[in-house]
Design a binder for these strands. Structure first.
Lengths: 201, 201
DNA sequence: CAAGGAAGTGAGTGCACACTCACCTCGTGG
DNA sequence: CCACGAGGTGAGTGTGCACTCACTTCCTTG
């Protein structure tokens, strides 16, 4: 397997582990083990843990951007409203909590980590530009869209998203329709290990 | 100094350090040193780091709740609208980024730390109840209020709050008035060490 | 003035983890 | 057929950190 392919694989493994356990709390040895390579080789693929973390965060940001872009394209093609479609795309990302938790960890890491901070700033800038370009939403609507996204991250991380209480119901209600932002299959506690196998039979 | 007073002092020091450096990234030895006690004695005051972290998070949540409560009381007394007043109170909390960053770190820690998760759930529940009791805001308004708060946390952590770009301007605009949520003196980069001395001349 | 207990410490211990070094093993081109 | 470069590793090393233990000091109270 080429080094480039290995790197991809390592990023995939690392993003799962770091989403579950937190970035700082994920040992590089474990990433190597789950990726099926030696600890030593991991450090040939990524010179430092820092480099791996940056790669993971940037990959996650790219995936979110791509999800938004394809949702926007599809909505334009079928003539639906674009912003709600993007909102649904974010909801779709939630059925795998990986990216969402990673976002949260990246935000918390930003103050101490200039690389991650720059990546997150760039990601917001790109997403903002995408939405501004692809929709006719007002600045206020765009801001609310991002705010709702941040709230959903927090609700998922704290487990409020799966709480059966009135205040939780209110908080997880979507901005656009009256329904919950969270997909119906969003029942996994964040503590539960993320499914090992991709559910693509 | 009594053990109880020491504990208070340690919580104050720890919450500053943990907000700056992150919770996991703050060594207990440093907390002890800045609090002027030995490392050994820290572990008599708090049996584990976990206990210290929980105390810090709960203290932070209590402070936010108190700030909201006094803002609500004051607004009711003077006859202003209560929800905007509470929003301003949150903005006021932002002039010292400590609590805000601590919130963010606590959210990111929640999936792995049952104590912190329980504390954050309880905090949201209490704040929600407070707002529901003290204001006549609709569920939608309350949800937007929380969403905006989460967005502000992230903008502060990523440094977008201090970015001079159009998208940053839009994101940091308040829900209620058209002005920025962030106080005018919010210029410190999150990387800058928090001021050592309280600026109360 | 003992005796007890609360406040407080110096000096470890053991472990987890980021990172390194010398080395191995093929597949390919000259 | 062999040299060399890319893929890959076993076995460390140094450091940082949570936590401990035996011990001191001093203040109160009978």
């Amino acid at each position: 397997m080429s080094a480039e392919e290995r790197r991809e694989q390592v990023i995939a493994v690392a993003s799962r582990l770091m989403a579950e356990r937190g970035i700082g709390a994920t040992p590089t040895a474990e990433v190597a083990e789950e990726a099926g390579i030696s600890h030593a080789y991991l450090f040939r693929l990524f010179p430092t843990k820092q480099a791996l973390v940056t790669a993971v965060v940037e990959r996650c940001n790219a995936e979110i951007h791509e999800a938004f872009k394809t949702a926007a394209d599809r909505a334009r093609a079928t003539g639906e409203d674009v912003l709600p479609a993007i909102g649904m795309a974010y909801g779709g990302l939630l059925s795998d909590p990986r990216r969402l938790l990673l976002q949260l960890h990246a935000h918390a890491l930003s103050p101490r980590d200039p690389d991650v901070r720059a990546a997150m700033q760039a990601s917001f800038r790109r997403l903002f530009a995408l939405i501004q370009r692809e929709t006719d939403a007002t600045p206020d609507e765009i801001r609310r869209f991002f705010a709702q996204g941040m709230l959903m991250n927090v609700l998922a991380a704290t487990g409020i998203a799966t709480l059966d209480e009135p205040f939780a119901d209110v908080l997880r209600t979507g901005e656009l329709d009256g329904a919950s932002c969270f997909p119906d299959d969003f029942t996994a506690s964040p503590l539960d290990p993320v499914a090992e196998e991709a559910p693509t039979p």
